[in-house]
């Protein structure tokens, strides 16, 4: 547990000192969403219809942007070897790194999302559910993304490769995230969608660190 917290603290400290990463993710998120009213016109009706989808697709892309930072620098400077040799399960280290990644990228997205929802004229009935889906969904994105980030270590053009690997796996999160918001906006219960999202999170919490650990060991062989 102490080791878990140490790794989280170190990664947060690194992210804060380097600064630009989480800022870049949020800026990308905001800018891309702002492009949509320009692209499809400012009619409130159309924007309202696509708001949930736009927010979620953009959030997927934004959270993917920072994935290569998750293990790449540690891999290059030799820290990863030492982290693998930490006297604890590698899954603990992976989970700590994913948590730090989520705190520096997923959480800022969560904060920015309702502001952008206003911009897209989203029905205010959907706001609470939007936040909930983001809260449950973005950790899933970080967890699945970690598998991809670990798999492409040492590959050239890892950034492009990771999107090809990971985006298909993000589809279920997208479907149920948007489904929940649409249901809420139409006055239906969002609960089934949210429960399925939560089930995805529950499945990813043990499985993703396990797969990521295996991929990291493979990368260091």
């Amino acid at each position: 547990m102490i080791r878990f917290l140490e790794v989280v603290r170190r990664d947060l400290r690194l992210a804060l000192r380097q600064g630009s990463d989480s800022l870049m993710v949020v800026t990308f998120f905001v800018l891309t969403v702002v492009l949509f009213p320009f692209g499809i016109g400012p009619e409130a009706g159309i924007l309202e219809r696509v708001a949930a989808g736009v927010l979620w697709v953009t959030a997927l892309l934004a959270s993917m942007l920072s994935l290569d930072r998750l293990f790449q620098t540690d891999y290059e400077d030799g820290s990863l070897e030492l982290l693998v040799l930490t006297p604890t399960s590698l899954m603990v280290v992976v989970l700590a790194k994913v948590l730090a990644h989520w705190l520096t990228t997923g959480l800022p997205l969560l904060v920015a999302a309702p502001i952008l929802a206003v911009l897209l004229h989203m029905n205010s009935d959907g706001f609470a559910v939007l936040m909930l889906t983001m809260l449950i969904g973005t950790p899933v994105l970080s967890l699945i993304g970690a598998i991809g980030a670990a798999l492409v270590l040492g590959a050239r053009r890892g950034g492009v490769l990771v999107s090809l690997l990971i985006l298909p796996l993000y589809v279920p999160v997208l479907i149920f995230g948007v489904g929940a918001i649409d249901a809420a906006v139409q006055g239906l219960s969002a609960e089934p969608h949210l429960l399925i999202l939560a089930a995805m999170l529950a499945a990813c919490l043990p499985l993703a660190p396990w797969a990521t650990s295996a991929a990291l060991r493979q990368a260091l062989e």
Binding site: I2, R3, E6, V7, R10, R13, L14, R17, Q18, E76, D77, G78, S79, E81, L82, L83, L85, T86, P87, T88
Partner: peptide, 27 residues
């Protein structure tokens, strides 16, 4: 294990770098 790479983070101070690795071995 001391390998070819030094595993020093450029934005952390010498003591911070060292304390992190020490804490992973010494709770």
């Amino acid at each position: 294990y001391v390998g070819h790479h030094d595993a020093i983070k450029p934005v952390l101070s010498v003591a911070e770098n060292l304390r992190f690795w020490a804490r992973l071995h010494e709770p």
